[in-house]
Write a protein that binds this DNA or RNA. Sequence first.
DNA 1: TGAGTATGAAAATAATTTTCTTTATTTATC
DNA 2: GATAAATAAAGAAAATTATTTTCATACTCA
Lengths: 293, 293
Amino acid sequence: MSPILHALEKEKSKLSQLERKLAERILASPGDVVHMGITELAEQCSISPATITRFCKVFHFKGFPDFKVKLAAELAHSDAAPQDGNSSYQDIVAGNPLSVIVEAMQANHLASIRDTTSLLNIERLQAVISLLCSARRVDLYGMATSSIVAQDFYQKLVRIGVNCTAFADSHMQITSASSLAAGDVAFAISYSGETPETIDALTCAGASGASTISLTSYGSSTLATLAEFPLFSSSLEQGMRRGDMASRIAQLHIIDILFTGMVSSKFGDFIPKLEHSYLNVQQYRHKRGGSMQ
Amino acid sequence: MSPILHALEKEKSKLSQLERKLAERILASPGDVVHMGITELAEQCSISPATITRFCKVFHFKGFPDFKVKLAAELAHSDAAPQDGNSSYQDIVAGNPLSVIVEAMQANHLASIRDTTSLLNIERLQAVISLLCSARRVDLYGMATSSIVAQDFYQKLVRIGVNCTAFADSHMQITSASSLAAGDVAFAISYSGETPETIDALTCAGASGASTISLTSYGSSTLATLAEFPLFSSSLEQGMRRGDMASRIAQLHIIDILFTGMVSSKFGDFIPKLEHSYLNVQQYRHKRGGSMQ
DNA sequence: TGAGTATGAAAATAATTTTCTTTATTTATC
DNA sequence: GATAAATAAAGAAAATTATTTTCATACTCA
C-alpha cells in the first residue's frame, strides 16, 4: 500500500473524531478523492474545509492540492506495477524459493525509492541543502540501523570539507548537541522517529539554538514533530520480521539527493575538494600497494 | 511515455505558438509542473494563465488542476520504466535545479537495483546463503564506503545469532582472517574490487581454509577473481564526482536478498531470534524511557 | 472550573476560469 | 499587390471558485 494511505491507516487511531472520519473517507476511495475539490470532500464527510486543510498539514503536506497530487502519484504507482502489488510486502515466509525472494525484494526496493521521491517536498529539501551548505558545524545523530545512514552521510560530508560528526555513542551525542549554537545544524535519523537517544539529542540541539532536521519514515512521530525541517522516507513495512530494509535504502536515497544538491549548489567550492579527496586516496593506496607484499 | 506527454508531443505542431511554448515547457520537466500553480507556470513561459486554462481544455481536461492530478498519476507510472535510460547517469553539474537532481537520482537508483537483480546468479546466491547459514564464523571485510555495507550486514547477522564480525581496522581484518579455518566464511566487499586492504584480508582468509565470497561491482577485478563465490552489483558510474552512491544501494540490495534468503531457509531457527532481538530492544527502550526525565 | 483541544464560520487570500478586448494573422476581393 | 473582412490568438481584468487563515465557540478532560 502506498505510504500515504499506509500512514493514514496507521495514524487513524491517533486522530480526532472528525479527522478519523476524513481519513476513512479517503481510504475508502482514494482514487475519487484526488479528483475532488476540498469543498466537495468536506460536504461528503460533513465537516468543514478548514478541517481538511488542517488534516493535510498534520501529514506534512503543503495543503490540500499538494496532498492530492502526491496521493495521485502514489495511487498510480501501486496499480502501475500490480505484479509487485499482489506479492508485495509479504512477510518473510519459510522456505520461499529464492527467486520469489529476489522478486519481492526488488519490488520492495523499487517501490520504496519511488514512493520516497514522490513524497519529497522540494522547497524543504532546498532549505535543508542551504542550511547544510552554510552550517558552521553539522551533527549527525542515529542509532543502530540509522547509524549506518548517518555514517554514510558523514563519509560524504567529510569528503567535501563540511565540519561534521556522526556519533555512535549516545552520551557523546548529547554532549555534542549541548555545545551547538545558532548557525550549527543537527540532523537526526531514525526509522521510527521514536528512538529515545536520538530524540534527546535533537531536543538538546534545538535548545542550544541549532537548526534541527529529521529524517524518519513517513507518518507522525516525535522526532518529526520536534524538527524544524522534517524529511521523510517511505514506510512500506509494518512487521518486525522484515526489519527496516527498504527504509534504509529509501533514507540513503534521500542522503544522496541532499549530498548531490549540496555539491551542485556549491559546485566551485565542493568539486575541487571532492576530487582532491579522491586523488589522495588513490595515491595513498598506490604507494602502500607498492611497498607491500 | 505517458499518454498525456505523448499527446502533447504529437499535437505540438498543431498548436499555436504560445501553446507550443507551453507544451515544450511541460515536456521539459513534467515532474515540476505538477507541483506548480498556474500563475507560476504562466510566468515561466511568459504567457497568461488564461492561455494555460485554454490549453488544458484543448486536451479535454476540466482545467489546470485536473490536468495536474492526471499528469502526476501518469508520471508515476512512467518513471518506473527506463525511458530514464536516455538521460541517465549524467554527472553532477553546477547549479542544476533540485528537481533535475531528484529525477536523475531516482533514475540512477532504480536502474541500479534493476540491473543488479538481472545480473544475479541465483544458484550462486543460493550457495552463498547456505554457506552463511552453516558457517561457524563469518568475517566481513570492507573499507570506507564499503564498510557501511559491511556494518549493515553485520547488524543483520547479529540479530539472527550468526557469529560474525565486521572490521573497521585493516590490521584487525588480517589478524582475524589468519585465524579462520575450514567451515568459516570470509565475505569481502569493495566497489572497485581493488581495495588493497580488502584483497589482502580475503587472500589471507582463503589461505587459512575459509570459504571466500566477494561483492564487487560488475566486471573483472582482483577481488572477484580471488573469491570462490563472486557476487556482483551493477556499476553505473564511472566519474569520481558521482562517487559510489548507486553502487552502495545496489550492494545493500544484495545484502537484503542474502539476509532474507537466510532467514527464509532457516525459518524455524532464525525467526524466533529475530523476534527476540526486536522485543528486547523495545523493552529496553521502554524501561529507559520510563526512568528518564 | 479552567486549560487545552477540536471545530466551524466567516474573512482573507490565493488560484483558476471566464469574459471581454486587443492584437495578429489569414483570406477574399478588388 | 493592397486592403478590408473574418478568424484566430492572446492577454487584462473581472468574476468565480477554491483554499487557507483567523477567530470565536463548544467541547473535553483533569
